[in-house]
Design a protein around this nucleic acid. Sequence first.
DNA 1: ACGCTGACTATTA
DNA 2: CTAATAGCCAGCG
Length: 129
Amino acid sequence: MPSKKKSTEKPKRLKPSGKREDNFFELVFEVARQIPKGRVTSYGAIAESLGAKSSARMVGWAMNGCHHAKLKVPAHRVVNRNGMLTGKFHFSPPEKMEQLLKKEGIKVKDDKIVDFQKYFWNPLEEIGF
DNA sequence: ACGCTGACTATTA
DNA sequence: CTAATAGCCAGCG
């Protein structure tokens, strides 16, 4: 099995506040970026891959700062455990989320992803934590 | 410094 | 089946 890692470095950014390194947040962004096109995942799955499945809320909170992040984060590929686009109202505009999902081949019905489990992408398998 | 809120999830009634 | 509650942790008034 391949691979391991390339010799690339992570864009570590220090916050002006100079607090702790938002390791958790940065990690969440990284995982979200690893989501392949046409796939989706849940906050809990990401949190679990980080070793904090109970902190699914923090993942959502991290997404709140995704817009503030330097790199783009496909937050539209991250939904809740039910596959419902709970955070669509945080986009600009909110319709953008399901539009992007539909554009990637994912069907959205009533703010919910159809065959969510089918499109589900498990970070634990890809990241190999 | 204290308390509320929030892009969640699992459990219990 | 649906509704309510607890657990989680960080940001903001």
